[in-house]
Computed example of a mutant assay.
Amino acid sequence: MARHEDVLIALRQIIRATDLYSRKLSKVAGLTSPQLLILQAIAAHGEMTMGDLANEVTLSQATVTTILDRLEKRGLLGRKRGESDKRRVYAHLTQAGMDIIEKAPTPLQDEFIARFDRLEEWEQSLILSSLQRVAAMMNAGDIDASPVLDLGAIDRAQPTVDLNQHREHTPLSKTDQK
Rank of each mutant, 00 (worst) to 15 (best):
G78Y: 02
R115S: 12
L68Y: 04
D110F: 11
A114T: 15
G141Y: 01
Q132D: 03
L128D: 05
G75A: 05
R88M: 12
K73V: 11
P171G: 11
A10G: 08
Q40D: 08
E5K: 13
L59C: 06
T18Y: 07
A17G: 11
A2C: 08
R70Q: 09
Q95T: 15
A2K: 10
I101A: 00
N164L: 15
K86E: 14
A43R: 11
K103R: 12
T94C: 03
K103I: 14
E72P: 06
I127N: 00
L119M: 04
A157M: 06
T58D: 08
Q95K: 15
V7A: 07
A43Q: 10
L71G: 00
K178H: 11
M1D: 04
F112V: 10
V134S: 05
G46Y: 01
K73P: 05
I9K: 15
P105S: 10
L108A: 15
N55Q: 03
A145C: 11
D6P: 02
T94L: 02
L131K: 00
T170C: 11
R88L: 14
T160W: 00
T63W: 06
M1T: 13
T49N: 02
S125N: 11
R12E: 10
A136R: 14
D117H: 09
A44C: 10
G82T: 02
V161A: 05
G30R: 00
R79I: 06
A10Q: 01
D150W: 07
D176P: 12
M1S: 08
E56K: 13
G97A: 05
P147A: 01
Q132P: 01
E120N: 09
S33Q: 13
Q95I: 15
L151R: 09
I143N: 00
T94F: 04
A62T: 14
A44P: 02
A136G: 12
S146T: 14
L39D: 03
D162W: 02
L128Q: 08
K80H: 14
P171N: 10
D176T: 11
D162R: 02
D155Y: 07
R118I: 09
H45T: 03
G78F: 02
S60D: 03
H45I: 02
L25N: 04
S146M: 06
K178W: 05
K27S: 13
H166I: 04
S125A: 13
Y90K: 02
M137I: 10
A54H: 04
M137E: 11
E121L: 12
Q35A: 08
T58L: 12
T160G: 13
R70H: 07
S33F: 09
R133G: 13
A114Q: 12
K27R: 11
H166T: 07
E120M: 08
I15E: 12
E47M: 01
K27E: 03
T65Y: 09
R70L: 06
T160I: 14
E56C: 13
G51H: 09
H166E: 07
Q40A: 10
V89N: 01
Q158K: 14
L131C: 11
V57M: 01
D99V: 08
D19S: 11
A10W: 05
T65H: 05
A114Y: 09
E102R: 14
T32W: 01
S22H: 07
L39F: 02
A41H: 00
N55A: 08
